[in-house]
Computed example of a mutant assay.
Amino acid sequence: MRRERFADRHEAGRELAGALSRYARRPDVWVLGLPRGGVPVAYEVAHALGVPLDVLIVRKLGAPRHEELAVGAIGPGGVRVLNRELVRHLGVGPEELEPIERKERAELERRQQAYRGARPFPDLAGKTVILVDDGLATGATMRAAALAVRAMRPARVVVAVPVAPPDTCEALLEVADEVVVLLQPEPFQAVGLWYEHFPQTSDEEVQDLLRRYGKG
């Protein structure tokens, strides 16, 4: 039986790869990490499976005055996902969401330049795409990522994370063909609680991992 927490993102990625072994060394498989914290996990998954690695940049839309609470997310290609029930519950109007989205769209573009530069995005048509993050809470960011990838006509979209609450996993089956999660604790509370070491991942770490994998 595995321990109740992961040592760090790299250990979590190696364990997650074990649950994805059926995708190993397949020419039709790509692993996409969600920056920043998902990239160390995705690096280990892609390395263990022997498949290509890239990044998919999406940004959470935090609630006004409660930035950690995601009311939605944005992704490339104009993808925008809103938790309309939560937006109504909090009484968040369009005039409050607009500056938040504008700020996050600018950060998405900055990260796109920092991590990908002018390098073209891979052709994912007909491919199996494994989307990896270090964990999920509401799942809004991953939902945006899955919808962005769906627009690229893949054969299959797989969401793979070390830890997420059961209701989030179930909800993501609306946009993914498969959801692979190692831990589904209740109560969940926060992703970082399920790691012994959970520092912020820096731009430099993301760039270094992509460079080491031949993508920088």
Rank of each mutant, 00 (worst) to 15 (best):
P76H: 07
A73H: 06
L136A: 12
R119G: 04
L16H: 02
E101Q: 14
A19T: 00
V51Q: 03
P166T: 02
A148P: 12
Q189N: 14
E98I: 01
A118E: 15
K103W: 15
E11P: 06
L210E: 09
A70R: 10
K103N: 14
D203P: 04
I100C: 10
R156Y: 09
Q184L: 08
E95R: 15
R84T: 01
A176L: 05
Q112P: 09
A7P: 08
A137S: 14
R105Q: 09
E15D: 05
V149T: 03
R2V: 01
V191G: 11
R111P: 10
K127R: 15
P185N: 15
H66A: 13
R153F: 13
G13R: 08
R88M: 01
G135R: 11
W194Y: 13
D208L: 01
L69M: 08
A17I: 03
P40C: 07
V41P: 00
V39N: 02
S21D: 09
V132C: 03
Q113K: 15
T128L: 09
L131N: 00
A171Y: 07
H47E: 08
E109H: 13
H197S: 11
P162W: 05
F188S: 12
V179G: 05
A146H: 08
G18K: 10
L90Q: 06
L34R: 08
L209P: 02
V39I: 01
G62D: 06
R25M: 06
D203A: 03
K103S: 15
R84L: 09
L210G: 00
T138K: 12
L53Q: 05
P27R: 11
V29C: 04
I57Y: 04
E101R: 15
R2T: 05
